[in-house]
């Protein structure tokens, strides 16, 4: 769901200009596509006078339960008063096109996504980690990252109770084979 300002239907415009598979829902203003088609989309959003998405308000990523990554863009057109959310599926190579060539605001947001998710942006002028040190070897917001592998540092994903349960289970599993002997 997306808070929509001026309810506009871009279905015709997209079907006319986007020559690849995509899903578009005018009610929620969400466009879903594969990330390799982003170059055509960026050009359309930035250059088309009817869209004129001049303000990239947010860029982030998310990991799906099945392990694939999505990059999520939120555009608004200050000129025409409409919004669009784009969810782009990241390919196996973990590299998508940078939006910095059209929107300068993507610069820091893409660095953040690289820092947190390890998704590379092709054509980014300065892709370095922004929050963490350059030597860090993990990407914190990936679901596979649970905690620093140091004893006593609390698990990030679960509550205390879940942790205690897991520990009890592990202790039991250790004991049982010993009992069999």
């Amino acid at each position: 769901m997306n808070h929509v300002l001026d309810q506009k239907d871009f279905s015709g415009l997209f079907s006319e200009n986007l020559k690849f598979d995509y899903e578009y829902d005018p009610a929620s203003q969400i466009l879903r596509l594969d990330a390799e088609h982003l170059p055509e989309l960026f050009a359309l959003l930035a250059m088309d006078e009817r869209l004129a998405m001049d303000y990239l308000r947010d860029l982030t990523a998310k990991e799906q339960p099945e392990g694939e990554f999505h990059v999520v863009y939120n555009w608004v057109s200050i000129e025409h008063h409409h919004t669009l959310m784009v969810v782009a599926k990241v390919p196996e190579s973990m590299e998508v096109l940078s939006a910095t060539q059209y929107w300068e605001s993507a610069n820091w947001m893409e660095r953040e996504v690289w820092d947190m998710f390890g998704i590379r942006f092709a054509g980014h002028p300065d892709l370095r980690r922004i929050y963490l040190e350059e030597t860090v070897s993990f990407f914190p917001l990936r679901k596979s990252f649970r905690t620093l592998p140091v004893e006593n540092v609390r698990d990030l994903g679960g509550s205390e109770r879940e942790l205690a349960k897991a520990r009890a289970k592990a202790a039991k599993a250790e004991k049982e084979p010993a009992g069999d002997k």
Binding site: M1, N2, H3, I30, R57, D58, K62, P65, V72, N74
Partner: peptide, 22 residues
């Protein structure tokens, strides 16, 4: 379950929040 992007005009500019729920 779903995803939503909400925004508001805070003291320091636009605060957006992107929430994905399972």
């Amino acid at each position: 379950a779903g995803e939503v992007y909400v925004r508001q005009e805070a003291a320091r500019g636009e605060f957006g929040c992107y929430l994905v729920s399972d």
